[in-house]
Amino acid sequence: MNAGLERNEAVVRKRSGSTKASRQKSVFLFIAIAPSLLGYLLFTLYPNLLSVYYSLLDWDGLTESKFVGFDNFVHMVGDRFVWRALYHNLLFMLVVPALIVLISLILAYLLNNKSYRENPFYKVLYFFTNVLSTVVIALLWAFIYDGSYGLLNGILGIFGADMNGFYWLGDSRTAFWALVVPMVWGGVGLYVVIFINAMSAIPKSLYEAAVLEGARPMTMLFRITIPLIRSVIRVCVVFVVLGTIKGFELILILTNGGPEGSTDVIGLYMFNLAFGKDYHNYGYASAIGMFLFVILVAAKFIIDKYYPEENVEF
């Protein structure tokens, strides 16, 4: 009987110790995630929920607000500037991510599979653009595109093309495509590094077998490398697409949506409505922000549907 009591006491002590350890673990986890959770609630979730409320107001951000319900959304449907900006967003979304991912894949493949002595230098060189701030990149390309002393016109002049002071960012025919180049140039470096790390995990024996079968470098890239790092490419595509849709800093500095609105995008239009010099409508800008959020969610669902996540083992 005493033995039975001792066993029961041992079980109780074991359970008590387990409960105490579990409680300590929960407290530790709460303390560990509390700063990040608080930051997310305070600086991400709360402002977003507040924007939903602001979208129902007629408010300039300073004076007394007026509740207008869904009038801002009704007005947005008939606002041609919103749809023009959305068209530019979609065009950027189709062109920029495709170029960034394709160029990054090719460069990463060359650096990972070719034993160039200068490989470490090339890696630093490609990643250097991500060290630069958006303002620096914008000023650099503003100089390149300048009509009077720009580098691009100077190079074209060497080959006999007299541009006659043509300003690439000041013409509605060229401004949009002139913005694509710095967007791609500034985004390639990060993804080159990501793809190099992913490719370095692929067994070299697969490439050696392909070489013995007579496969060419581009064949190995599209038949071996890309299928095996498909999940990494998918994540990069999501980041690039969503970043292209919501980003507008480079456009703000280089063209501010001009000339004649030929480079305006949703994020920039929203920013100018809320904080522009001549017009302040924080409520309407918040409604456009909600529209931008819907676009981002829709883009994510489209990517998930047509580019599903796959786990590859090798």
Rank of each mutant, 00 (worst) to 15 (best):
P182C: 10
P182V: 13
V184W: 02
G186Q: 02
G187Y: 00
V188E: 03
L190S: 11
Y191T: 06
V192P: 11
V193W: 06
N197Y: 12
A198P: 06
I202L: 15
P203V: 14
P203Y: 13
K204L: 07
S205R: 13
L206A: 06
E208F: 13
L212C: 10
L212D: 07
G214Q: 10
A215F: 15
T219Y: 01
M220K: 09
L221N: 12
L221I: 05
T225N: 14
T225W: 05
P227H: 00
P227G: 02
S231W: 08
I233L: 14
V235D: 09
C236H: 08
V240G: 04
V240T: 08
L242G: 06
L242V: 07
T244Y: 05
F248M: 00
E249T: 06
I251D: 06
I251S: 07
L252I: 09
L254T: 04
T255W: 02
G258E: 04
G258C: 07
G261K: 14
S262K: 05
S262I: 09
S262N: 08
T263I: 03
I266Q: 13
I266W: 10
L268A: 02
L268I: 02
L268W: 07
Y269R: 04
N272F: 06
L273P: 01
A274Y: 09
A274N: 10
A274I: 05
F275D: 04
K277M: 13
K277V: 15
D278Y: 11
N281K: 02
N281R: 01
Y282K: 14
Y284G: 14
A285I: 03
I288M: 00
M290I: 10
M290T: 04
L292G: 03
F293Q: 11
F293R: 08
I295E: 09
I295L: 12
L296C: 15
K300L: 11
D304W: 02
D304I: 06
D304H: 02
Y306I: 03
